[in-house]
């Protein structure tokens, strides 16, 4: 069992939905990424998705597009993602997945990428523009490095397709909540629930997590009824953006607010300001 599988199994055993939080490496600034990861970890993230910025992120809505552009404007490179993961790993056992588009990974060299990621304490990969049909170029290397390879399903995936993805995925199956981009509005919740219920019946070999458009604790609770947990990206990115664009806040205030945001997503209430569980 991988660290990711163990974590998700433990959440399941406790009957609490697992919470995965996404942020982009190098965002809002390269120096801030590791402290942000610790803040969301302290706030209750069960695992972390660290985004590898790309110039043309075609499945992303505006918040993640902006975070990617901002990271790239700081000159962030692939090696920086490994440094971020390794640095975070020194202070936490929370699983980390790298998420991003295939092209930067291809240029880095897939085998070299997988080895470096594993050495940096990364637990898995999510590459949303690599469906199972094109994944043969990475499965072997990911497996050899001990990295989980998460695949996605969508509301328009057929039953057979969902079963096939479940067979190929390791770590978990990522259910995209709506046919849309990251950060889309969760319209037609009845349809979302019936799709997740259908997926729940078909995904038998992996935990099932839902993401896209989840912005609040209430969204998370609702969508976790038929899943093992949820993933939040755009809403967190917007919160980080708001904190760092506000010049009146100190860095300590900002990390505290991010920690509270994560805590509120998971538990529905903010931790009292200033109470740092790490202290």
């Amino acid at each position: 069992m991988s660290r990711l599988s163990d974590t998700l199994a433990a959440c399941r055993a406790q009957g609490t939905p697992a919470m995965g939080l996404f942020t982009t490496n190098g965002f809002p600034h390269p120096d801030a990424t590791v402290p942000v990861l610790h803040a969301i970890d302290d706030g209750g993230a069960d695992f972390i998705e660290l985004g590898m910025p790309f110039s043309d992120p075609l499945a992303e809505g505006l918040p993640i597009q902006r975070s990617s552009a901002r990271a790239l404007s700081h000159g962030v490179k692939m090696d920086d993602a490994f440094d971020t993961a390794a640095s975070f790993r020194k202070g936490s056992d929370t699983p980390v997945l790298l998420m991003g588009y295939i092209n930067p990974v291809l240029q880095y060299g897939i085998e070299r990428f997988c080895t470096k990621a594993a050495n940096a304490g990364v637990d898995g990969l999510i590459l949303p523009d690599v469906p199972p049909e094109e994944a043969t170029l990475l499965t072997e290397h990911a497996q050899a490095a001990g990295l989980d390879l998460v695949f996605l399903i969508a509301p328009n995936s057929s039953d057979a397709r969902i079963q096939r993805v479940d067979e190929l995925a390791t770590g978990f199956v990522y259910a995209v909540s709506v046919t849309g981009l990251t950060g889309s509005r969760l319209d037609g919740r009845g349809a979302v629930q019936s799709y997740l219920k259908r997926a729940r019946g078909l995904v038998t070999q992996n935990p099932l997590l839902v993401g896209f458009g989840i912005a609040t604790h209430e969204d998370a609770q609702e969508l976790s009824q038929h899943t093992d947990g949820f993933i939040v990206g755009s809403a967190l990115i917007k919160e980080i953006e708001a904190c760092w664009d506000d010049d009146t806040l100190s860095d300590a205030d900002r990390y505290a607010r991010i920690r509270q945001f994560a805590h509120a997503l998971k538990h529905g209430d903010a931790v009292a300001a200033g109470s740092n569980p790490a202290e």
């Binding site: 075609l58 049909e133 996605l152 509301p155 328009n156 397709r161 993805v165 995209v176």
Partner: peptide, 19 residues
């Protein structure tokens, strides 16, 4: 599968696979 030698294919988000 839409490959011209090593090129081509369909590197798309899952939503577009059935489409």
């Amino acid at each position: 599968t839409g490959h011209f030698g090593p090129y081509g294919g369909a590197f798309v988000p899952e939503i577009l696979v059935p489409v």
